[in-house]
Each structure stands twice: as C-alpha cells, then as structure tokens.
Nucleic acid binder design. Sequence first.
DNA 1: ATGAAAGCGCTAACAA
DNA 2: TTGTTAGCGCTTTCAT
Lengths: 333, 333
Amino acid sequence: MPKRQVTLDEVAERAGVSRSAASRVINNAPHVSRAKREAVQRAVDALGYVPNATARALATQQAGSVVLAISGEDPALFADPFFAEVVVGISSVLEETDLELVLSLATSRRGQARLEQLLRTRQADGVMLMSLHENDPLAALAQQADVPVVFGGRPRDFEPSYYVDADNRGGARAATEHLIAGGRTRIATITGRLDEGAGTARYQGFQDALAIAGLEASRVAHGEFAEDGGAKAMGELLSRWPDLDGVFVASDQMAVGAMRVLREAGKSVPEDVGVVGFNDISGARHTVPPLTTVHQPIQALGREMARMLLALLAGEQPSPLILPTRLVVRASG
Amino acid sequence: MPKRQVTLDEVAERAGVSRSAASRVINNAPHVSRAKREAVQRAVDALGYVPNATARALATQQAGSVVLAISGEDPALFADPFFAEVVVGISSVLEETDLELVLSLATSRRGQARLEQLLRTRQADGVMLMSLHENDPLAALAQQADVPVVFGGRPRDFEPSYYVDADNRGGARAATEHLIAGGRTRIATITGRLDEGAGTARYQGFQDALAIAGLEASRVAHGEFAEDGGAKAMGELLSRWPDLDGVFVASDQMAVGAMRVLREAGKSVPEDVGVVGFNDISGARHTVPPLTTVHQPIQALGREMARMLLALLAGEQPSPLILPTRLVVRASG
DNA sequence: ATGAAAGCGCTAACAA
DNA sequence: TTGTTAGCGCTTTCAT
C-alpha cells in the first residue's frame, strides 16, 4: 500500500551519477560539476523526488523540528486564545525555515513523561516552554537538557538564560497610574495566580505605582483567572472596602466578572469605580462600558521566541527580551 | 556537546544479551525468556536508555506523528479561539498514544508546499485537515495521499470519506426556528463565508426553517466573519428592510457588530429585533443583552477527529460523524 | 570533482 | 527462545 518512495539512489542512477554526487546537489554543496548538477536536477524533477526527512534526521542527528510545550495541570489551559496567538507568531517565523512545529500539551503525567524523553533524546532540535508554574519539574529538566530551551514568560522561581516576556510589571504599573491620574485614591487590585510569573509581576506593578504615589496598597483580593473568579474577588473587595474607587484587575476575563458585580452592587463604572484590566482580549472593547486595559504583543511574543530559538540553534547567544506593553484607554477607567 | 545517547547495543551488552533480544524486550514482543527480560530491564534502568525515535521511524517506516493542518490564506486565522479548543480535544486523545502532534499552518505558499511534501512522503502517519476553502488545492492532495486523512468540517465542494463535523445546518435551523417561535415573521440573516462548508450549511439551515414555516427567506446579507463585517452587513440589511424583526447571524463575532448597529439605529434588542448568533464564544454571555446563540462541541470535535484518525491507523473504517449543536437561549432573541 | 564505503540506531526476517 | 544479518534512506569522511 505505501507507494514506495523515490530514493536518492534512483535519482542518482537516472542521472547517471553516484549517490554522493546526487546528495551534494540536493543539499547544494560544492564540488559538483555544472553538468552533473543539471542532470541530477532533471532526474529529481522527472521522478518527483523528495528527500526522506527521517533518514536525513538519523544521518545528521538533527530532528528538523522544534517543540512548543505548554505545561500545566489543566489541558483546557491551552484553550485560552492567548496561546493561539502565540502559535500564530511562532508559526510565521518557522514557516521560513524547514523546521516542523510539534505541539506538546504536557498536562497529564504521561504527557510530561513524553516531553521529558523528548528533552533527553534530542528528538527535537529545540524547545519553547510556556506557562510553567511554581516548582514545575520541567524547569529543572529544561535547564539541563542538551537541547536549547527558550522560555515564554519568566517562571516565578528562577530566571532562565533565554526567555522572552511581556512587560507585565510595567504594564500593571501603567494601568494603576492611569487610575491614579484619574484622581482615585482608594485603589484595589484583583490579582491572578501568584505562583506564576505573570501574576506576581502584575501585582508588583500595582504596588510600584501606589508606592510611588504614596498611596496605600492594601486592598487586595486574589482571583483565579476566569470570569467567575473575578466576580468573587470583587465581592470580597467590596465587602471589605465599600468605599474603594478604583480597581486594577489582572486579566480582562476577571475584569468582566468584576464589572458585573460592581453593577449589581449599584456602583457605576467609571463614575464610582474605575476599572482597568489586562490582556486586551477581543471582547474588551465591547463590555459596557468598554474596558480600559493593557495590551500585550502576543504574536510578537511568539515570533520572538521562535527567533530566539533559531538564533540559539545557529550557535548564537541571544539576550533575553522583554516586550513592551501598552495601555489602551477606553471608558471603564 | 551532544551528550552521546545511550544505544540499544549498549543496553544489550550490559545485559549480556543480543541486540535483538533487547529490542524485543523494549517493544515487549514475545520470545524472550523471563531471565533475559529482567536483565534487559535492569540495564535499561541503569543506563537510562530511551529509544531513538528517529531510528525507529526509519526502520519501521512509521513516523510516530500526525499532523493537524489548517489551511487558509491568512495566518491569523488560527488566532480564532476555535482552533485552540480543537487542539485541546485532539491533544487529549493523542496523549494516550505515542504519537506526536505536528501543527502545520499552511498559510503561505511555502507552508503549503511543505504540507504537500509531508503528505507525499509519509513523514507523518496521518493528517487532520481543517478549514479548507473552496478549490483548495490541498483537497486533491489529501484525497490521493497515501496517508489517512480526516477532515474537520466538510468542505463545500466535496464530501470526504472521513470527516467529523458539527451540525451547522441543524443548529442554524434551530436558531431560526427560535426566532420564528418568538412570533417574528420578517427574519433576515447575515451569512458567513459561503465558500466554506460551515458558512453554506448555516445558510441552508436558515432557509430550511423559513421554508418549513412558510416565511420568506430573501433578507440576506453576506458578512465576513469578523465583527466589523457583521456591523456592515447589518447596516445593509436595515437599509433594505427597515421593518425586519429578527436576524440570524452566522457567527457571534458578527452578531456583536450587528447588535451595535441595531442599537445605533435605535432598534432595541430583543423587543424590536431578535438576534441569534452562532458559536457560543465566551463573550456571548456578556453582550448586552446576552446573546442567544448556537453552541457547538468544539473540544469534542477535536477529540473525535483524533479518534477517527487513530481508527484509520488501526486499519478500521470509521464512519463520518456529525456532532450535535445546541441552542443556548439568552436574552437577545 | 568524484565515488566507495562506513555509519546514524533501530527493526525484522531468517536461521539456528 | 535465541542471535545473525540485512536493511530503512541519507550524509559524510576519505581516498582517488
């Protein structure tokens, strides 16, 4: 059934040259006469030859692929549109190369084990790792793996050699400063997961801004990243500090929930309470009122991760990258 | 630098057995004595042996991977959270196997060419293909490829042997019938792209419902899938049929735009005009008013695609699958 | 510039 | 139940 594939030998024979000559032509290496070169070329076209990537990988000891690994206990994590965008970015630069993109959602124990193997056996030429949580076993593995690893985002508990991250802290600070600039003084925050780099960075940014302004940064509630988490956290905030007049929410999803609770509590946004989110999800411009939020260049994040990995594969030593975020002012804050 | 990997030979030597015996143990094939089996096992553990997937692939002629290919001219297409969900589904079943998932966004000419190669050279054991548009060259290739191909969604212009699709037509019909049940009689639709299977199926479902009810189905505007497309289409609809009292919109994204225009035109939803969308995106429950829409089981779609491919790889001949959709009634319609 | 030959690490047919 | 042997298709010295 497997229509036998055209091999290099067949090409060589047809072209009347040795296999090594043919091989040289295919990889356009030097030391082949013009005449042979063309003969081989013709044979390739005639036969429809396509090199067998597996055989090549075995011979060269290069897999010809890189993997994007998303760690985390919940498989559904990847459903966050965030990753889709990252993938688009990565994919756009990989498309210029001959590398395949392998996607590894290392979520179950089994998945983790596979990723582990992969790291140890060079089954991929490089790895992009995202969304590690605290004490993720993958971190150690990645560090001592003998393939290049690029981190997307910084893990909370250590600083990898190669990473690209968004300026979460700066973005959060800008968001909070915007609230302050609006004359608000009793500002709260709903944080994201604090066992992740992004979550803590945003929390720090919030603190930075308040510290600089000499305001109190004690109004804090911890939310899970989803909408209901935001709603719940807003409820807590409101019951402890009924007079708050601004809130920086670490994700737009949570901000949506928070605004709902605010509305239900009879507070109007932004008159009574200003709200600023983070991420600039597509829905942010259609909440009522439209959500002021922090935009991060997600596709660029993916692109830069891929570029960095490519640089590493080329033997270079790229510097870590922090991509700027940008405050998008809409009506809510 | 490449820490030389542990080979099967080393394991065999250490265990004091032949390489083939070792191989048999690894693949737990029969014809090995208990004693040897254990010896090999010990050696494997001691040495930390992990088989080289590439070599194995070359020897067995099985790639050990399947690809998810998304066709389309726009790379950003994949940014639609829809795909992320599909990936989660696929990934969850693949995680139980030893297959890797290769992601191929065949968007540029170059990307298409690579996918083509891949199909021709069995560099993957199977392919899942999504979002083909009309006259997509990939269709032909996929059909005659010598690897199993499962389609996600049905292309408009032909019926593949193996596919899993959501019941777009039935969902659209249910949506429209809901509008009818609300007593509306001048119902319009904003279609999606009609060169895709999903777009036409939804349009047909709309027509089905009106035909059965004996209502006129002439109020039609074509939109692109994004929000602005929906807004523009709604504008057209309103200018041609100012008295319309209901509209089925082929995607939630477009529905958001449509509702905006409706509001701007002074029409209230759902009092003056009922609106029903499609997809049940996460934002749908937070539009004002909350959007009535059709939910499709996206993760399940991914799961079933993967399962079907697995079945194919196992030599079975699975039947095509159509997954049910479900109307989610909220306030807008 | 050219070709012969020796692998890359594994599997599988065959003989013992 | 064993081990020997011949590949899988390509790259890459190393002579010529």
